[in-house]
Amino acid sequence: MECMVNGKGKSMTDAARKLRISVLETAYRGGDANLQSVFSSIEILRVLYDRVLRITPGTKDSPNRDYFVLSKGQSTMGLLALLAEKGYFGEEELETACQYDSRISMQADRTKLPGVEICAGSLGHGFPIAAGIAYAGKIQGRNGQVYVLAGDGEMNEGTMWEAALFAVGEKLDNLTLIVDDNASLKEMLDIGDIGSKLENFGFDIRYVDGHDEEGLFQVIARPHIGRPGAVIARTKRGYGSHILMEDRSWFHRAPDQEELAQLTEDVKKFGMGG
C-alpha cells in the first residue's frame, strides 16, 4: 500500500513500515537502540536488500557477490531485522537482542551472524574497509559491487576522506557510497555540502530523497563508469514516526512497553492521512 506523507508526495511502503515495527520490537527486547538513526536509513536498507544487492543466504560467501558494508553502525538493528526477514537467520532470534549470549545486538559482529560483512561500531572504519574490498575485487577480477552506508556525521572522520582519495585514485567504480544525510552535521561544525566535496574529490554524485524507494533505486542502481559513486540520500531522523522525529530524547534510548505500543501505533498511522 502506497500512502502520502505530509501531503508532499512522499511514501512509505508496507515493507518499510513492517521493518520499522520489527526494529521497535527488537529495540524493546534489547533495552537499547538508536531509533532515530535506524529509522532514517530504513528505505535505503529496503531498496538495497529488496532490489539492488545480488546476495542471498545461499550466495553469502560467493566471491562474486555484491557486498553491503554498514559503516554507520547505528543502523545495525535495521540491518539485522532485514537479514532475519530475508532468511539469513530465524526472525525469532531478534527476540534475544542484547542478551548475554545473543548474536543480535546494537552493533553486529560478523564472526557471529551470517550476512553481516563487518563488525561495526566505531565510525570511520566501514568505508575504508569497503574500499579495500572493492580494490581486492578489481585486482582479482571479481564482479560484485560494493555498497557502503555511512552517516553524514560520520563524514567528519578523517579516514572517510582517506578512503575517498584512495577510491578515486584507484578508479573504484565497483564502490558506491551511500550517505544517510539525516542532518546530523547541522548540529556540529558546519563543513558545508558533503556531496560537492565528494564531487571535487572525483566521485560521481547523485542526490535523492532518502525516503523515496523508487528514487533511491534509480540512483543507487545507475552505474558510474571509471570512478566511485556517492549517493547523498536526504533523510530525516526518526522518519516513519512523528514521535521519533520530534522528540530528540530518542537519539539513544529504548522504548518501554507502553512506549513500544505508542511508537508502533505511530508508525502504523504515519502517512495514512489521519
Binding site: 575504508p128 574497509i129 569497503a130 574500499a131 579495500g132 574490498i133 584512495f166
Partner: peptide
Amino acid sequence: NIGIFEPGTIGIAAGTALTGMIP
C-alpha cells in the same frame, strides 16, 4: 606505494583481507 595515510591504509588492507587476500 599507498602514500602517507596509515589509518585509512590499514582499513583498506583489512578490506582486502576480508575477501581472502593476505595484506
